[in-house]
């Protein structure tokens, strides 16, 4: 009797948890699918389901020079911000990763703080600083601002990769007569490279998608894609944005698939 009651109870628990989990997964994935479908509409509105299907909005997108211009700016800034983040972030991660010193822990908190602090407040602050020193808004100020908010991803992933490195490997290498630089090049770097790449990838994506910092540090000459899209959406509900969104979704899926193969991205984010 008791056993029967328990199995019923176990079934009810598993049923509820599984149903909620599946609903949650559908809520996560559905919006992207909806955008993909709507982008092929033949109509002028975002009605779902679409009245018919066509590629007209992709043709529109092909001619949307303002979006192309903004996309080019966003790509350039994201690439530079990622490069700067790798150089500064990997060096800093090497310094703080194995150190127990208070200074290392404080620096770690400092480097991570842009992840928690409201980026909009930082964007305003950066604009005020640049205008105080007379530096006009330009791709340079954008790269600097983006690097501040993107470098934490590189630092965090590199520190995590370094933490998994066996210290005995480094000691053996030293005992066998290798210099520190040689050990770094031949042992450390190959082992932590996937971690660096994963961090750089997330940094790149978050720079490409950044709004709060760009909002203050760009102007008409340095229009950025997410802001252009946001302003287009504020004004009118343009189906061209659906086509662009679909392109971005597909690009993200492809990049994530590549990164999963190269760096084991999913394991990195759950360990």
């Amino acid at each position: 009797m008791n056993g029967r009651k328990r199995t019923l109870e176990a079934i009810s628990f598993e049923f509820v948890m599984t149903v909620i989990a599946i609903i949650a997964l559908i809520i996560i994935i559905a919006p992207s699918l909806v955008v993909l479908i709507v982008s092929f509409t033949s109509g002028f509105s975002l009605r779902f389901p679409p009245p018919g299907y066509s590629l007209r909005w992709y043709a529109e997108l092909w001619d949307a020079w303002q979006l192309h211009f903004a996309a080019k700016n966003s790509l350039i800034v994201a690439l530079w911000a990622t490069c700067l983040s790798i150089v500064l972030g990997v060096a800093a991660a090497l310094a703080i990763s194995r150190s127990q010193k208070l200074s290392a822990r404080l620096l770690d908190s400092l480097f991570m703080s842009p992840l928690v602090l409201p980026a909009l407040a930082f964007g305003l602050a950066a604009l005020m600083l640049f205008s105080l020193v007379g530096l006009p808004v330009s791709p340079l100020t954008l790269v600097i601002g983006h690097t501040v908010v993107c470098v934490p991803y590189v630092v965090r992933n590199t520190v995590a990769a370094l933490a998994q490195l066996e210290p005995t490997l480094l000691e053996s290498s030293a005992v066998l007569g290798a210099s520190r630089l040689y050990t770094f090049r031949r042992i450390v770097l190959p082992l932590i490279r996937p971690g660096i790449i994963a961090g750089a990838f997330i940094a790149f994506m978050s720079s490409f998608d950044n709004v709060p910092v760009s909002l203050f540090l760009r102007d008409a000459a340095t229009d950025m894609l997410p802001i252009r899209m946001w302003q287009d959406l504020e004004g009118k509900l343009d189906v061209t944005i659906a086509a662009l969104s679909s392109v971005l979704i597909i690009a993200t899926v492809v990049l994530v698939a590549v990164m999963e193969r190269v760096t084991g991205l999913s394991r990195r984010l759950t360990n």
Binding site: P31, S32, V34, V35, F208, D209, V211, P226, M229, W230, L233, I241, A242, S245, L248, I249, T252
Partner: peptide
Amino acid sequence: SVVVRTFA
């Protein structure tokens, strides 16, 4: 992109 997700 957050704009894409919001647009959805």
